[in-house]
Design a protein around this nucleic acid. Structure first.
Lengths: 108, 108
DNA sequence: TACCATAGTAACAAAAAGTAAAGTATAATG
DNA sequence: CATTATACTTTACTTTTTGTTACTATGGTA
């Protein structure tokens, strides 16, 4: 059915607007370990730069995947954690991880 | 453990080099329906263009996710299908789809 | 003869991502 | 008292990735 195809396409497209960015999954992967501050994330994700981390965190917050909590300390502190929507990605990201691991020795 | 963290990071990084591109998942999603020719794929993936389809198909073939079979017809025909490695992504992409669908009405 | 089809390729323009630096405000160090 | 360090961003600039458009080959159809 044509409608159904269009619907399918939109769901996948919408999903990729959330987790399709280059840094979304690495960030979520780190947050699966628990709440992290901005600098902690920056240090734990190899290759990311400040600008992209800010940008991706904003997108993930806007899409309700992560929760941002600032504290009025000096210097400022901001904690990021997964929302329930983000937490629901855990089995999917784990499965992706297992998929990658099981094929990494065979072919590339 | 430091080694284990580095290992984790590399697996995720390697996985994203395969399916992290903008068009990889939409292409695999279509091929989950079955073998498709180049033009069929191009027509069924809204917004893609020839150059990116060619590029992404080459990458997916190189990473052993899809199989390319050309036929010496005029005009030429090329069929693309999922390898077993690609087929193993089915439950993951389905889960991603369900995740997107279950949250599409609540928030965005 | 003009036009259609498939599976690409090539040259150029636009958009996205990476890099480097600076701006906050305070507190510790020399 | 000046310097340095901190955490979280923002800005300007450069490089890389994507998108757009036009083109190829060959044979069948109107």
């Amino acid at each position: 059915m044509l409608y159904y195809n269009n619907h399918e396409k939109c769901v996948i497209k919408d999903v990729l607007e959330i987790v399709g960015g280059k840094w979304a999954i690495p960030i979520i992967f780190r947050l699966l370990e628990g709440t992290k501050r901005f600098k902690e994330l920056e240090r734990s994700i190899p290759g990311i730069n400040t600008r992209m981390l800010v940008k991706e965190l904003k997108n993930l917050e806007l899409k309700n995947v992560i929760f941002r909590q600032p504290f009025p300390t000096v210097p400022p502190t901001v904690e990021y954690s997964l929302t329930s929507k983000g937490e629901e990605l855990r089995p999917i990201i784990n499965a992706l991880y297992v998929w990658g691991e099981s094929h990494s020795t065979q072919d590339h």
